[in-house]
Amino acid sequence: MPKTVLIVDDSSFLSKQIAEFFTSQLGFQVVAIGKDGNEAVDLYRKHKPDLVTMDLTMPNKDGKTAINEILTEFADARIMVISAVKGNTVLECLNRGAKGYVEKPLKFSDPLFVEDFKQSVDEVFN
C-alpha cells in the first residue's frame, strides 16, 4: 500500500507540482491538498496521512500554528516544512516536532534539489 501525503500550500500551482512529484517520483498517494492552516488541521483529522508537507506563510492560519495544532492532537504526525521563509521560524517548527524541511523555490528540474527533496522525505520516515 502506497504511503499517503497531505499537501498544504496556499499556491495551487505549487501544490500541483508537489503532488505530481510525490506521485510520480516517490510513489505516494496524495490524499488531499489544503490551502491554509485551517484546512491542514481538518484534512489531517480526516485522512491521518503518513506525511504532511506544510507551507508556512498562508492566509487564515499560518503553517507554524497548524503544525502546533496537529502535533498537539497527533503527537506522531510526520510533518515536513516546505517554505521560502528565512530566519528562525523553520527552526521553531523543527523544535516543535516537524521532522524536516525543504526550501523554496521548488526547482524540480534541478537534480540536486530533487535529491535533497527525496532525502528530506526519507529522513522524515527514519
Partner: peptide, 16 residues
C-alpha cells in the same frame, strides 16, 4: 535530538 536523523547541512542551515 536530530543529529542522527537529519543531514548535517540541513541542520546547520537553520542555525540562527
Amino acid at each position: 535530538s536530530k543529529h542522527a536523523a537529519m543531514r548535517w547541512d540541513k541542520l546547520t542551515k537553520v542555525a540562527p
